[in-house]
Design a protein around this nucleic acid. Sequence first.
DNA 1: ATATAAAGTTAGACGAGACTAACAAAATTA
DNA 2: TAATTTTGTTAGTCTCGTCTAACTTTATAT
Lengths: 218, 218
Amino acid sequence: MNSLTVENYLKALLHLGHESGEVNVNDLSKHLDIKMPTVTSMMKKLAEKDLVHYESYKPVRLTDYGKKEAALIIRKHRLTEMFLVEKMDFGWEEVHDIAEQIEHVKSPLFFNKMEELLGHPKLDPHGSPIPDRDGNFSLKSYNPLSTIAKGMIVHLAAVTNSSQEFLKFLNSRDLALGTLLKIENIEEFDGTMLVSYENHPNETFSKLVCDRLLVEVV
Amino acid sequence: MNSLTVENYLKALLHLGHESGEVNVNDLSKHLDIKMPTVTSMMKKLAEKDLVHYESYKPVRLTDYGKKEAALIIRKHRLTEMFLVEKMDFGWEEVHDIAEQIEHVKSPLFFNKMEELLGHPKLDPHGSPIPDRDGNFSLKSYNPLSTIAKGMIVHLAAVTNSSQEFLKFLNSRDLALGTLLKIENIEEFDGTMLVSYENHPNETFSKLVCDRLLVEVV
DNA sequence: ATATAAAGTTAGACGAGACTAACAAAATTA
DNA sequence: TAATTTTGTTAGTCTCGTCTAACTTTATAT
Ligand SMILES: [Mn+2]
Ligand SMILES: [Mn+2]
Ligand SMILES: [Mn+2]
Ligand SMILES: [Mn+2]
């Protein structure tokens, strides 16, 4: 049985390695806000448990087993977020921190019950896929809004950041998953985008924001 | 912020001290399944945090502050149990172990939301009172079935033990909170009771069981 | 190619929370 | 009262997960 600490390392490894599969000790250190020597020593322990492949001075990679364990924590995290939003009336900006704690609860029954009550949802409140009981999930590759061309019409499919501040900002602009967006203009200089949707005919979003909005062309 | 470990010590102290207010290190050690020297050293730490009054070789007492902190954990435990039973279709025998974990979640919002969705319940699924947001609760003093005289009619108000095994036993006899019981006979020798209720005209309960059933005379 | 900077490791320490072995105090029994 | 048992404490050790300081390896810049 992995400790809460180990579970959080595994999640970070899966998150940071989602593209190349490789994770630098330094990036992990920054992401978890834990000093590098601590991370190095933890990597050796995870390697001992066959959760990662580790060689000195090389990037770390999750083993298949490590990936599965990580996915099962993420499953619990996302089911929890969905439950909080759907069954307990929380806003999508309130659920991440609570799920960060409840994801460590040891009780398959509890999470399977959530899943059942929710009708086996495929996505969490932020548009991220919920792994199944075996840890499998298909990550649809949506594109960041920042990569879409002027004139296109897209819908908001997911967000890549679930922080309270960011989601509150989206709330303040009446942006929610599913919202249809038309790209009116793009400022070449800094990537700022001028977008229209619903009752917002001329909303401006910074590059930072556009990078975090994942969209699908309609 | 108290650690999960400290929170569990506080709950044990409140539980074991519910009558005299005093708790022996030895009893605490047995209840928590933690060796006595560990408990002694933890008592010193709790005293340092003003959670208990501690003097060498004397029984431990919670301070008022300690009592309140303990009650607030119990509040979270019992709200969770109630939520699991009322909103997630769990049986009363399944919820204790899950609540034992969720009670440590740091999020007043989460538990206040539960309370609201449940309509501010006064009792948990085992008949125990749920403390309010300030840690106050009135402990009705029901009597164990084992203290009731032959011929009396009572209803089951609470159970003093929430273990899966015990509650499964009660389920197997169709006993639930509120069940009306008539005491048909008492075996003087060993305290075994012959009881009738609903579709059970002649059920026999051992002294052990009768001690754990809290009842109220109708 | 060399110097510098960044990334990673080693060594040693620490607090939390557990343990065992040995001893001391208090309670019980004879 | 004296012997014995039970309860509680002290001292020392261990693992987990963290840290800082110092050092090494790898990457980058001059
Ligand atoms: Mn989240
Ligand atoms: Mn977490
Ligand atoms: Mn309980
Ligand atoms: Mn607990």
